[in-house]
Design a protein around this nucleic acid. Structure first.
Lengths: 105, 105
DNA sequence: AATAATACTACGTGATGCGATGTATTGTGT
DNA sequence: ACACAATACATCGCATCACGTAGTATTATT
């Protein structure tokens, strides 16, 4: 799938994953992979970005004598998800515009 | 609407507009505006890009002693539209993933 | 005479997904 | 015991793209 078309979407997918259950990088990617193509480097870039913009907070926990960073969503993160959902109809409208124009005549 | 979410979509909207009827910048933007938010600078940037990548060709025509650049779609442009349409289900899948995760519990 | 509409161009910026690469530990198969 | 996969995270730099801002120039309207 085209890279450009994923812009903005991936970020919200990540937020949605940790919404009800705080999770860590490795697990997040495992949970997403079956439904959404995402690379490791992208995920960690996104997690960092979401942290910097206060959409999530990080809690480092020791697990089997190894550190694990658990990501917890914040109210800003929740708001971001809602915001995206409100934009979705605009994206569908663009798709429908394309199909409609494409089928003219 | 979020800028990032439009990535890749606008380009295809432009191609769709000129698909059946070659058109020029000013008219394209008029035709799109009611359905798709796009700025002038973006449109002309996209038109240039589509020309450079052989998705359309330009035919300059004199109209009322003023030059008008008519944009005609090419086979590559048509292919691009089809390609996008084949990607759309992946975008819908991402949206559905978000809603599904969001509604868990 | 002033303003809006028509028509196109150019520059620079910010955002983002990703490939490539690296580090380090734990578990599993042979 | 050794190799390899799995677990877990981090960083750099690139390419792409929408847009704001600004500019040029002609024609139509008030």
């Amino acid at each position: 799938m085209d890279v450009q078309l994923k812009r903005g979407l991936l970020e919200v997918c990540v937020l949605a994953v940790i919404r009800n259950q705080p999770s860590y990088g490795y697990k997040i990617i495992k949970d997403m992979k079956p439904y959404v193509e995402i690379s490791e480097s992208t995920l960690y870039t996104i997690l960092k970005r979401l942290e910097d913009s206060d959409m999530l907070i990080v809690k480092t926990v020791e697990h089997n004598s190894r550190l694990r960073k658990y990501y917890h969503i914040t109210s800003r993160g929740l708001k971001r998800i809602e915001e995206f959902k409100s934009y979705w109809p605009d994206m569908v409208a663009m798709y429908e515009f394309i199909v409609r124009e494409d089928n003219k005549q």
